[in-house]
Design a protein around this nucleic acid. Structure first.
Lengths: 146, 146
DNA sequence: TTATTATATTGTAATCATTACAAGTTAGTA
DNA sequence: TACTAACTTGTAATGATTACAATATAATAA
């Protein structure tokens, strides 16, 4: 899914969330970096460009954006929260070697979960963990060098 | 899924994990409390019975059991890790009102995720968030009392 | 049973992510 | 241009988890 920056701005305006310099920069970062970044990565990525930026502001901004439904939280490891500007229905794969998070297409709604028939569901998440293709290739190359 | 305590003990023995008093108590707690407890809940639940128990031991024990594949980690909220003695293929629903976690049957392997065809997958997780049936009933009763 | 030893437990201190808070700043509006 | 509610910032607080070193114990063999 392609995220259109201008659409995000309209979305913010319609929700009366002020278009502060810092928020626009965080949004811009997320639309330019599809890496499911952590708060630290966002902060470090923007710090040169916005020297006054505070990490608290990054937290505040992300919380606002999540509340507004413009950003999704990814909780895979318990010690690092990641953020995703793509709120469409998709899954995440985390490589335990290179730590990269890959998106993959999956229609979560195609499941039947009858036990939840009378439950209100706001949010559906799928994530897998393992070793990505590239890391398998890399490690077999290292072995063949022995 | 019914977890057989004796099977867990054999599993531990075969992996050369010592059957210390504290570990047995944590395992017993998990097999008796299908509530996906937090570390605090386990610690508080056992503290009367095992007064010398340390919270560090609960952490250490759970990490060992997770490494051994006897317990699964549930990361839904970023600030509370929960533990599940049921390692079978199933999904979790977290109610945002009563905070309870419900299990539901779902065959995660029934999906096709072709983009991951050459990825090694060790671990698959599904969780939903929303309002459970009981909390919806409760809140409509409160409203009708107005 | 007893002695031995590798492994486990414990309490405290350290770490790290996140939030609380209060003072200063700014976006949006009139 | 002035006003004000909302936002940003830096620091301090919080809370979960881990590191560490001293003590205790499970498993093994004599």
């Amino acid at each position: 899914m392609k995220v259109i920056y201008a659409d995000l701005l309209n979305e913010l305006k319609s929700r009366n969330i002020r278009l502060s310099h810092q928020r626009l920069k965080v949004l811009e970062y997320l639309t330019k970096n599809y890496t499911h970044p952590t708060v630290d990565q966002i902060y470090n990525g923007l710090h040169q460009d916005v020297p006054t930026l505070s990490k608290t502001t990054v937290y505040n901004t992300l919380n606002s954006l999540v509340d507004a439904g413009l950003v999704r939280v990814i909780n895979i490891e318990d010690n690092e929260t990641r953020y995703d500007i793509d709120t469409d229905n998709h899954g995440h794969f985390k490589c335990e070697k290179c730590r990269k998070i890959y998106d993959f297409k999956i229609n979560i709604d195609s499941f039947d979960a009858h036990e939840l028939d009378h439950f209100k569901i706001f949010d559906k998440n799928i994530y897998f963990k393992g070793i990505c293709r590239q890391c398998q290739i890399d490690s077999s190359n290292i072995q063949s060098n022995n």
